[in-house]
């Protein structure tokens, strides 16, 4: 039982982390109709900026600021140098251009920082664990990730539903020409949304840095999982991103914990071992396949 609750918390933590990435990506698609592969790169930049700043200053908050600023600025640079020229082009070209940017950025970071992974310590005030109830002590850093994820969800909900900016975002997602006709500066709106997405990536990067190794390929691995999240949730929908992130988080975490156990109980060890490893790594994609069978445009399709 304790193990089960711990796995649920792990799922929640992974889900919260995925939501930080998926919310920005889904907003960018919903409003600008752009498929942006560099989203994972912003996350990597954030993690590097955060980890290096912490190593330099020793302050987690400086690291937090540096990560969000670094990712945000790189996001704005990418938007104004490349992505803005591709808004009305076929998705194929958006894929190619942002793929090229990933390759370039990865190599540039390798040249500057080197190939060796960087490790970032958990800040003192987040180290250790809390006893949630007798027998279950949960790491504070992971709890912090859950809290940050939920806070961002609340922030985005307020932003989208209760501000002028949010109104434009919603209107822009429905009808780009209409918003344009209202005399709203679309350049400004696009850059803000793109920048916001990048800042959230930076936040995710610095929050994840103490839990993982900061390395070059971290961006792409998570990017594809993020795609799975928003395909499940419905491309363009923040609510869908939240639900999708939680579902993927839970399936991944529970799958890792229980699939090997169940299979070893049922099958001879050698077969079960291989099969379990394959099944665990495929679990979230199988989840996606099932969702697609029932709801091809995700659980919360943004446009009817």
């Amino acid at each position: 039982m304790i193990l089960f609750i711990e796995q649920l918390l792990n799922g929640l933590q992974y889900g919260a982390f995925l939501f930080l990435l998926a919310s920005g990506l889904t907003l960018v698609f919903g409003i600008m109709g752009v498929i942006n592969l560099t989203h994972g790169t912003f996350y990597m930049i954030g993690a590097y900026c955060g980890a290096l700043t912490v190593a330099l200053t020793g302050s987690f908050f400086m690291g937090l600021l540096a990560a969000m600023a670094g990712a945000g600025l790189y996001g704005l640079l990418v938007e104004s140098a490349v992505v803005r020229w591709l808004y009305n082009r076929d998705h194929l070209y958006q894929v190619l251009a942002t793929l090229g940017l990933i390759l370039f950025t990865n190599e540039a970071v390798t040249l500057i920082v080197g190939r060796a992974p960087i490790f970032m310590n958990i800040p003192d005030f987040l180290s250790g664990s809390v006893t949630l109830f007798p027998g279950l002590a949960y790491p504070l850093m992971r709890l912090a990730l859950i809290v940050v994820g939920l806070a961002v969800a609340l922030f985005l909900w307020l932003l989208v539903n209760h501000t002028r900016f949010g109104m434009l975002v919603r209107a822009g997602a429905d009808d780009r020409q209409m918003v344009d006709a209202l005399g709203v500066n679309m350049r400004w709106l696009y850059m803000s949304v793109f920048g916001l997405g990048a800042v959230l990536c930076g936040l995710a990067g610095v929050m994840a840095a103490p839990l993982l190794a900061v390395e070059i390929a971290m961006g792409e691995r998570i990017l594809i999982t993020t795609f799975v999240v928003i395909v499940i949730g419905g491309v363009g929908s923040i609510r869908g991103a939240l639900v999708g992130a939680m579902l993927v988080g839970m399936v991944d975490s529970l799958g890792r914990a229980y699939v090997p156990q169940i299979l070893t109980a049922l099958l001879p060890y050698s077969v079960a071992d291989t099969l379990a490893a394959g099944l665990v790594s495929a679990s979230i994609y199988v989840l996606m396949a099932f969702v697609l069978l029932v709801r091809p445009y995700g659980l919360f399709p943004a446009r009817s």
């Binding site: 591709l86 070209y93 190619l96 251009a97 090229g100 950025t105």
Partner: peptide
């Protein structure tokens, strides 16, 4: 080099 080339091909 290859990265920026892909960007140029796309643009």
């Amino acid at each position: 080099v290859m990265g920026p080339m892909l960007v140029l091909i796309a643009l």
